[in-house]
């Protein structure tokens, strides 16, 4: 399970050294177990769900809004009830987890990589390259997330891949700004001067020296941003700009349920909402833990 957690959080080439370091230190805490369970459920969703909520033939409209425990016309019980269209809530949570995790992890990783590259490049080359990249970052951060996402999704068209793209566009600047700050202080350290004096190729300096040494902030940001991405995707869904209608993610399942919040059909939003909360919270807890281990000061202590 630890391995799963790590693979998900640290899926990136060139990180094996760092990852190995953590693998030794990781101990199984409560949040790690919860997160691992979520990931496991997401992977096994088709095997353990009573219903495939994305298959219109398996979803029965006449069973819509059944309370938890109702036995539907399909012959199985809706343990957590059904939503307004007859989708089994439990199955929707299982399947929604997959989409939410894939969307958030893929977009955050991609954003982190782009941000890393941009930040290191800006810091190393300075001058106009730095100016251009950082103005772009400023621009990005001064535009409302929702506007960027809306424009991106509408121009690109709907679909899970487009949402990932939109989330990348929204997130990369945060990494870039953070990494640049760290990389900037690294470039002033003596080993960089030494590398330059030795006339090492620029690419080599960037990849072998500056990048590994600037990676820590991006890493600490990653779990937080994955959590953000899940919440952001949910918010986009809430505003009607999220994943496709018939393939709800965890976030859009919650958003769908909001219309029913005051109807007494609490289960539609409550259970996916709790699942969402636990997922993001466990990611954040695990992220905190990772960060504590990453921090050289606390490691020294």
């Amino acid at each position: 399970m630890k391995a799963i957690v790590l693979r998900i959080l640290l899926q990136r080439p060139g990180l094996d050294r760092t990852a190995g370091l953590f693998r030794l230190r990781l101990r199984a805490g409560g949040s790690q177990i919860v997160l691992a369970a979520f990931v496991l459920v997401a992977i096994l969703a088709p095997l353990i769900s009573p219903q495939n909520p994305y298959d219109p033939l398996q979803v029965l409209g006449w069973d819509a809004s059944s309370p938890p425990g109702t036995v539907g016309s399909g012959g199985y019980a809706y343990i957590l009830g059904t939503d307004g269209l007859g989708r089994d809530i439990l199955s929707t949570i299982f399947y929604g987890l997959r989409i939410s995790l894939v969307v958030s992890i893929v977009s955050s990783l991609a954003a982190a990589m782009i941000g890393l590259a941009a930040g290191v490049t800006a810091a190393y080359f300075g001058r106009w390259i730095d100016a251009v990249i950082m103005r772009l970052v400023d621009l990005q951060l001064s535009l409302p997330t929702i506007l960027v996402a809306l424009i991106a999704i509408v121009t690109l068209g709907p679909g899970v891949d487009r949402i990932i793209l939109a989330l990348i566009i929204v997130q990369w600047a945060v990494y870039a700004r953070m990494v640049r700050g760290v990389a900037l202080s690294e470039t002033r350290k003596s080993y960089m001067d030494a590398a330059q004096l030795l006339r090492m190729p620029t690419l080599r300096i960037l990849l072998r020296h500056l990048l590994p040494n600037s990676i820590a902030p991006a890493l600490t940001l990653l779990p937080i941003e994955i959590g953000h991405a899940i919440a952001l995707e949910a918010t986009l869904s809430f505003l009607g700009l999220g994943v496709p209608l018939d393939k709800p993610s965890l976030g859009s399942a919650v958003a769908n349920g909001f219309q029913y919040l005051m109807t007494g059909q609490y289960w539609i939003s409550l259970f996916p909402g709790l699942a969402l909360l636990c997922l993001v919270a466990s990611i954040n807890f695990v992220g905190d833990d990772l960060r504590r281990r990453l921090d050289p000061r606390s490691a020294a202590r």
Binding site: P56, L57, G61, G84, V154, G240, P244, L245, D246
Partner: peptide, 28 residues
């Protein structure tokens, strides 16, 4: 409106028609 799109998706699946429901803002 958007719920109807999904209900029709379920309905028509029963005669073999695969519907991709797509709800977008009114102006779009």
């Amino acid at each position: 409106d958007s719920e109807s799109l999904q209900a029709i998706t379920q309905n028509w699946a029963r005669i073999g028609i695969t519907v991709e429901p797509q709800a977008v803002p009114f102006s779009v």
